[in-house]
Each structure stands twice: as C-alpha cells, then as structure tokens.
C-alpha cells in the first residue's frame, strides 16, 4: 500500500491517468444512478434490476455492432428499445407492487434482475463482451498516460444526455408532472394528473437512461450477463450518498465514486476496488445517521 502511494508521489503523472479514468467512468455511473434517483424519488420503488437494465443496453450495442452498426449509433436504438421495455415492465410488474411495502418491490425487482441476467445469458452466452468503437488511443506524457478517444466521446455523450434530461424535467409538461407527482402524488391526482401514466413514463425513462449508460459502458469497459449487480450497487451507493431529487449531488457522487474506485484499486490493490465502494456506502450511512440524530435533537 505504501509502496503504491510512493509510486504516486514519484510519478505524479499517474494521478492524471487515475483522475481521467475515474471521471470518464464516473459519468456513466452518474447516469444510471440518476435513473434510480428518479424511480426512487417519484415512485418510491427501489429498483434492484437497475444494473441489469444497464447490461441490456450494453448487449443491444454488442448485437448491433455484430450487425455492422457503429456502437455510438446504437445509443438512440438502445434508448428507444429500453424505453419500451421499461414501459412494458411497468405495466406487467411494477404497477402491482408500487403501493405495497418496501420488501414487495425489492423482491419483485430482484426477481426481475435474475430473469434479465439469465435471459441475456441464454441469448448471448456467458462470455465477456465489448463493443469496439475503432477510435484511436492517444498517449500523453511520453506514453505514461493513455486516453482512449472513445472514453472522451462517451463522457461527452453522458454530459449531453444529462443536459437533455434536466431540460426535459424542467421545461416539458411531462417533466413537470413527474416532479409534481414526486412532491405529492395525491395532490397531483387531485389536480388532474394521470399518475399511473406518470409512473409508467418515469420507469420507462429510467430504463432508457440505464440503456444509454449500458451503451457507453460496453464501449469503454466490458459487459457480461451477470455484471449487472455491481452497477445496481454503485447506483444505490450514489443515490444514498447524494439523496434523490439532487441532480448535482448525483453527478458529484458519480464522479466521486469513479475516482474512489480508481484510487482504491491503485493504492489498496484491485481486490479492494469494489470493496471501496461498499466501504464508502457504510461511511455515508454512518454520516447520515449522525446528521439525522442531530436533526432529531434540534427538533426536540
């Protein structure tokens, strides 16, 4: 560990690599997490199939890439397909668990996660896949730091998608309806908002966002039918840390998580890369608990 730290001090340029990789991947984490924040905040559904939606997006990319379509062009396709898929899943499953207690929705989405993972495994097989973008890889600092252009591109796409979603939520009628439903579903219903439709749209939008995130991940990392769970965990960590309805917070936490993973992997070793994520979650929860305890005291 100290050896690795001294490596960072001796060759500070390595920090550049870790920072860049952390930010690039953090952007895609933030995207999936924002989708979770949306369904969590609006519908109070904790979607455990979040990561599996991400994998589906990835596999759509891989399938299209095999048919000769450039992975970046898979982005709109994945968004549309996943939006429809999300709508169908809402109508078939989520609608029935939305008013039930926490465990029903957890169990339902967990079941959904298993079905999706096994389905992907049956269709695509358990091999690890990746979509080759064919873009160049740049070296800087005498080759010590490399930047894959696809990572830059996916970072830009993630940012663009985030802006579109923000504008949509702020400006469009549906966006306003979603926010109104999140604040008070009953009042929204009284005001004439069809909350069932709002829920369906929210869930579908989440699936679409996850699909987009999956497209980006299949281009910059690798995907496998059973990798979904790690993205679900990451999304939960980010949303728990940032709180829902707090988009800047989600983005910041996404970047933070990306960086924490890279530095965790470098300093503590690869075996702790994902443990860092869960460790951070514990810290965040403790911190939240302390905050709330203080809050309760103040109220008393």
């Amino acid at each position: 560990m100290f050896q690795n730290l001294s490596l960072l001090v001796q060759a500070p340029v390595l920090n550049v690599q870790l920072l860049l990789d952390g930010l690039f991947i953090g952007a895609t984490f933030a995207l999936a997490a924002y989708g979770l924040a949306l369904v969590w905040g609006v519908m109070n559904v904790k979607n455990l199939a979040q990561g599996d939606f991400v994998m589906m997006g990835g596999y759509i990319t891989v399938a299209l890439a095999q048919a000769g379509i450039h992975p970046i062009l898979a982005l709109p396709v994945a968004i549309v397909v996943m939006f429809i898929f999300g709508w169908v899943v809402y109508k078939l499953v989520i609608r029935y668990v939305i008013d039930r207690d926490l465990f029903t929705s957890l169990l339902a989405t967990f079941g959904l996660a298993i079905v999706i993972a096994q389905g992907l495994n049956l269709i695509f097989g358990p091999e690890v896949r990746t979509a080759d973008s064919g873009l160049a890889i740049r070296s800087i600092f005498g080759g010590l730091v490399t930047i894959a252009e696809i990572k830059l591109a996916s970072f830009g796409l993630a940012a663009a998608l985030a802006v579109i979603v923000i504008l949509f939520m702020k400006r469009s009628r549906m966006g306003q309806a979603i926010r109104a439903t999140a604040q008070d579903a009953r009042a929204a219903r009284v005001m004439g908002i069809d909350t069932d439709r709002v829920y369906a749209f929210t869930f579908a939008l989440n699936a679409a966002i996850c699909g987009a995130s999956g497209v980006l991940i299949s281009m910059i990392w690798v995907i496998q039918p059973f990798f979904g769970i790690t993205y679900s965990i990451r999304s939960f960590v980010i949303v728990t840390a940032a709180g829902f309805g707090n988009l800047p917070g989600v983005i910041a936490a996404g970047f933070g998580l990306g960086l924490a993973e890279q530095y965790g992997g470098f300093v503590l070793g690869a075996q702790f890369q994902q443990a860092t994520v869960v460790g951070l979650l514990v810290l965040v929860l403790i911190w939240r608990q302390i905050q709330q305890a203080r809050h309760r005291q103040a109220v008393r």
Binding site: N4, L14, I25, G265, F266, G269, A270, Q271
Partner: peptide, 22 residues
C-alpha cells in the same frame, strides 16, 4: 506487483497503471 482481481471485474486499469510505472 501482486494484485488480486475482484470476482465481478470489469476494470483493472488502476492495476495496469501500476504495471506501466513499474
């Protein structure tokens, strides 16, 4: 260098960064 990869690994770039330096 003696790193252990996690089970659900999809990224070892931090480890490879060390390889590059070492």
């Amino acid at each position: 260098l003696d790193d252990k990869m996690p089970r659900d690994l999809s990224d070892i770039s931090a480890t490879l960064t060390k390889v590059k330096a070492l």
